[in-house]
């Protein structure tokens, strides 16, 4: 049971950590100043949630690993984030597409987790759900603005959506850990979230004059099977700890 809880908490933490890191890559590169600040802020929210989840995961595991140990001293195969969040930023449209699909799902997960029997997960979710509401709205507004904008912005938004869409089935697939956590009243019923997600995503896509893609990519990020992108990202994120093990500020 503790193994499942560790695994489950790690997934939540890694989703936040990896997407937060991806969003931070935009710092200094966003198309406009307001978006530079926005993407940095979105990343910061996720990083904050990642810290809470990973600290708790370390505690559940009981081997004395801290949030930093978990973030900086694991190799790619030990990460449990869904594959969607490790996908490269692409252009701004693709980043917004990824964020739309993720935030649309993650806010539903957090809503369920506020009712979790695990009081720590419930507390982090209670805090996070209010923050992610801003993420969802931000991504949805940009999706509409770009999708329903110029020919070029429409083309790019549609193409960004195609790039990342295939990774969404993984978000709703229940495995042994998910099922055990659901039975224990700790985790969310991911499969049951699909209709609500479909409805909110479709509403945005219609408004944005975008087509709903149907591509499916086999992805098992939450079981530790990752695309090559994650390794490259970690090599940068973990560089300091790899080059100078145990180094502190």
């Amino acid at each position: 049971m503790a193994d499942h809880l560790f695994e489950y908490t790690l997934r939540l933490g890694d989703n936040c950590l990896i997407l937060g890191q991806r969003l931070a890559e935009w710092t200094g590169h966003a198309p406009i100043l307001e978006e530079d600040l926005a993407l940095g802020n979105l990343g910061l929210d996720l990083l904050g949630q990642a810290r809470a989840f990973l600290t708790y995961a370390g505690k559940v595991e009981g081997k004395g690993r801290s949030e930093d140990d978990l973030a900086f001293l694991r190799d790619a195969h030990a990460f449990r984030n869904v594959s969607l969040v490790e996908q490269p930023n692409g252009d701004f449209g693709q980043t917004m597409a990824r964020h739309l699909l993720f935030a649309g799902w993650y806010s539903l997960v957090l809503e369920r987790l506020t009712q979790s029997q695990d009081s720590t997960l419930a507390a982090v979710a209670e805090k996070g759900v209010k923050e992610i509401a801003y993420h969802w709205r931000h991504a949805a507004e940009w999706t509409i603005r770009l999708g329903d904008g110029t020919d070029e912005s429409h083309r790019r938004m549609q193409s960004g959506l195609h790039q990342v869409w295939g990774y969404t089935p993984e978000l709703f697939r229940m495995d042994e850990t998910d099922t055990a956590m659901l039975r224990a009243g700790v985790g969310a019923d991911l499969a049951a979230l699909q209709p609500a997600w479909d409805a909110r995503i479709d509403a945005v896509l219609v408004e944005a004059s975008l087509e709903r893609p149907s591509s499916v990519t086999r992805s098992n990020g939450k079981q530790g099977v990752h695309s090559e992108h994650l390794g490259h990202m970690l090599s940068e994120m973990q560089f300091l700890q790899r080059a100078y093990p145990g180094m502190e500020w």
Partner: peptide, 13 residues
């Protein structure tokens, strides 16, 4: 509102 995000997490522009 110019942007929902500002110089700190708690402020908008």
């Amino acid at each position: 509102r110019v942007s929902a995000f500002g110089a700190t997490a708690c402020k908008a522009m």
